[in-house]
Design a binder for these strands. Structure first.
Length: 633
DNA sequence: TTAGGGTTAG
């Protein structure tokens, strides 16, 4: 029978007195109660009792069942429909709850609720305020602007324009349909008909449309802020790439004594992960632990992702194993995290466990799996999973999947096969694929092919500096210095080069270095350390590889230019200010050049330091003279 | 007797 913490269906007991049911039946109804969030099984049990009592056609009982079903996730829509169809004379209440079942985001076609609304009107039933909230919800889920406007017209015609719930739903609808101006119009129509949800909905509409400074002003103006107002503003900053501002807002909220909830913690952790700065995220994590905040699925998943992005993959694995409950996102972040760290075999093993647990892979799962294959150069496995994805799971490959495959094939030297794959793609071509191929031309010294692709790319996107850089590197490797100069000049005329930088967290601060940087307060010591590193790596037999240097300068100057790459300055600073037992963690915006990669391996050996570099596309974990990427990147 | 806003994976 049902446990004590249950909420009886009050209508049922009322019904009993009305029909003077027998005492025995009264007891049956008394036990026919449901908890506030019943499971599908519990609802089905209640349904069975109603059927046994011969009340399957009663609008009130069935309306309640539908109300519970509309709240529960993953309820088969066919089941709701069969309940609704059994009602002899559906009331507005029953219609509303069926509309709500149809409107839910997990229903395949929320707009079916509009058809039900029409049939309700044909039955001469008058919609009420609840009807419109659910209908507008359906239009929001479907991002259906035209239908939404039609519902809005009905709202006005039938005189529900001053209902605050409906107005809030309208603001939300126009936001979901990317019509922020319409949201604003509804918001401004009546300043008296607003509550905190109205303000929050408008705030969300502004941040979602990227109007962050307008949102910021509104947030300051708001007299009545609740935890969702803060959550919306923090999320707004983070989703618009203003990560530091998002974290500052999070701090401000805490200083005001407002306790963060799950949504806020998840956003703050995600911002810290994106920044790649470990101390901040660790601080949030320790706060979560100190207040005994439960390791819920979203919090745990974000923590796993965050540690993977910090380079602490072992910590991610530990958390993954600790999580009492996992969803598909949890598995995906673990798979993608391991792939980011080039642990290809572990990725494939985890994918098997994922399937054994009864999960069905989605597009992102395969991005992780294919990325792992690509980074480890596992050609046959990559081909196998690419086929598995389309043939067994019916997932249409997206740009990212093709990207992994092109990268895998091209870097393995199968450049013709990679080019063929690009030609046969079923999605619109992204120049990044040709750019991947261009990278492979550099590895294999294919000057002619590289020239063709490089020129094609430059034609397609003349303002992007990356294509010129890659082409110039191909020429540099072939020591065709005149061509290097020509491409560099073109680049200087047409583009603005993105400056490379490296970050390191030390002594409670973030230090950023550019190549050849002399701005740091410990500049003298850093360059002294760089010199000492240079001598020791030379003693260890290192010979500089100057092909990454594009400048048309003398050989000695080229050597010096490499020596002063931003990551080397950051590493020198790291050796200077951290303890030997500490790992040196660097975050770099561009990819590590071959020479720096080689030198960092040697540094890790002769200085006995663990160095983790997160570059533009992956992690390099340097230890005892080796890198986790096994020089394949 | 049914209602609204903010959250995690490439």
């Amino acid at each position: 029978m049902f446990i004590s913490k249950t909420k009886p269906l009050r209508c049922l007991t009322k019904h009993i007195s009305k029909f003077h049911l027998s005492t025995a039946l009264f007891h049956t109804w008394h036990f026919l109660s449901l908890p506030s969030s019943p499971s599908l099984t519990q609802i089905k049990q209640a349904h069975a009792r109603i059927l046994v009592s011969g009340l399957a056609a009663d609008a009130r009982f069935m309306g309640h069942l539908l109300a519970h079903l509309s709240l529960s996730d993953s309820v088969p829509l066919g089941y709701c429909k069969s309940i609704f169809r059994a009602i002899s004379f559906p009331s507005v209440f029953a219609f509303n709850n069926m509309i709500r079942c149809l409107a839910k985001g997990n229903s395949n076609s929320p707009l079916q609720s509009l058809a039900l609304y029409s049939s309700m009107q044909r039955g001469y039933l008058k919609p009420n305020n609840y009807t419109f909230t659910f209908l507008l919800q359906a239009c929001s889920f479907a991002s259906a602007n035209t239908e939404g406007i039609q519902v809005h017209t009905h709202v006005m015609k039938l005189g529900f324009g001053n209902d605050v719930f409906i107005r809030n739903a309208l603001i939300h609808l126009y936001c979901a349909c990317s019509r922020v101006e319409n949201s604003k119009r509804v918001f401004e129509e009546d300043a008296l008909c607003r509550d905190v949800v109205t303000w929050n909905s408008m705030l969300a509409a502004l941040v979602r449309s990227g109007q962050i400074s307008v949102a910021e002003r509104m947030f300051v103006e708001m007299l009545d802020k609740d935890v969702i107002s803060w959550s919306t503003m923090i999320t707004g900053y983070v989703q618009n790439g203003l990560l530091k501002k998002g974290l500052e807002c999070f701090n401000e909220m805490r200083e005001k004594g407002i306790k963060p909830n799950e949504a806020i913690l998840v956003t703050a952790l995600s911002a810290s992960a994106q920044l790649g700065l470990i101390s901040y995220g660790r601080l949030i994590h320790s706060t979560i632990e100190s207040v005994n905040f439960p390791l819920t699925v979203p919090v745990g998943t974000t923590l796993i992702d965050m540690y993977a992005k910090y380079g602490c993959i072992e910590q991610s694995k530990f958390l993954f194993n600790c999580m009492p409950k996992k969803d598909i996102c949890t598995w995906n972040v673990m798979i993608c995290g391991l792939a980011l760290h080039c642990h290809a075999k572990q990725v494939l093993a985890l994918f098997q466990s994922f399937i054994s647990e009864g999960f069905s892979p989605v597009n992102i799962t395969f991005i992780g799996v294919l990325n792992a294959c690509s980074r480890a150069g596992m050609v046959s496995e990559g081909r196998h999973y690419f086929k598995l994805m389309t043939n067994d799971y019916g997932i249409q490959p997206e740009m990212e999947h093709y990207g992994c495959m092109v990268d895998l094939l091209a870097r393995a030297g199968l450049i013709d096969e990679a080019a063929q794959l690009i030609e046969t793609m079923v999605v619109p071509l992204d120049p990044v694929l040709w750019s991947t191929l261009l990278g492979a031309c550099k590895i294999y010294g294919l000057v002619e092919m590289g020239e063709n692709i490089g020129n094609k790319l430059i034609q397609l996107d003349p303002n992007r500096d990356g294509h010129y850089v890659q082409l110039a590197r191909i020429y540099a490797k072939a020591r065709k210095w005149e061509d290097v100069v020509r491409v560099r000049r073109l680049m200087a005329e047409r583009t603005r080069k993105i400056a490379g930088w490296s970050l390191i967290e030390a002594q409670g601060r973030v230090h950023r270095f550019f190549a050849g940087d002399r701005e740091h307060e410990r500049c003298y010591d850093i360059y002294k350390m760089l010199e000492s590193i240079g001598l020791r790596v030379a003693e260890a037999g290192y010979l500089p590889n100057i092909s990454p240097v594009l400048h048309d300068i003398g050989e000695e100057e080229k050597e010096n230019a490499i020596k002063e790459h931003s990551e080397r300055l950051a590493i020198a600073f790291g050796i200077l200010v951290t303890e030997v037992r500490d790992c040196i963690r660097i975050v770099k915006n561009l990819r590590v050049c071959e020479d720096c990669h080689e030198v960092t391996k040697i540094i890790s050996r002769i200085f006995k330091r663990e160095i983790i570099v997160r570059d533009g596309s992956r992690f390099h974990h340097f230890k005892e003279g080796k890198c986790s990427c096994l020089d394949y990147w």
